[in-house]
Amino acid sequence: MSIELTHPGCELLSGQPMVIKNVKNYFHIHTYGGLSPFFVGLREGRLLGTRCGNASCEEQRIFLPPRTHCPDCLSPSVWVEAPTVGEIYTHTEILYPGAGFKLTTPCPLISVSLEGVCTKMMSYLKEGQPRIGMKIKAVFNTEHPTHTILDLAWVPA
C-alpha cells in the first residue's frame, strides 16, 4: 500500500523565486464568557453595561463596553441597564474596510457618549449623516442576529 495525497496541494504562482498559494479555511470557537449578558441583552433589545459592585469604589459610573471586574478596585461588576439615548462623540465614514467587514459601505462609524457612562463605545449609525453632538438612540438587530457587536446600532433620536 502506498501513501497518497488527500489534498490537491498548493497553487504555483511563480517559478523563480518559487511562490505558492496556501489556502486556509478554518474557524475559531469564541466565548464571550462573563461578558455574555451584554450579547444576550442585544438579542433581547436591551443595552446592558456594568457598574463596580463595590460601593466604596470611587468609580460608580457605568462602563460600556462592559467589564467583568472594575479596573480600579478589581471588584466583580454588577449588570445595569445603560441609557439607550445619547449623542455622537465622534464619527467617521469608512470607505475601504478590511477583509471580513459585514456591513455595506460607505458606513458611518461613531463613538457614543451616554449620560452616566464613563466610556464612549464604538458603534455605527444605521441611518442618517453623523455629526458630533447629534442625538441618537439605540436600535437592535433582533430578527437576524449576527451575535456580534454589529447587532447594536444607532439612529437619529
Binding site: Y96, F101, K102, C107, Y124, I149
Partner: peptide
Amino acid sequence: FESELGWMYTAYYAL
C-alpha cells in the same frame, strides 16, 4: 467590541 466595526485601524484613527 471593535474589530467587527471596520476591520481597519484607519477608521479607528479617523474617529
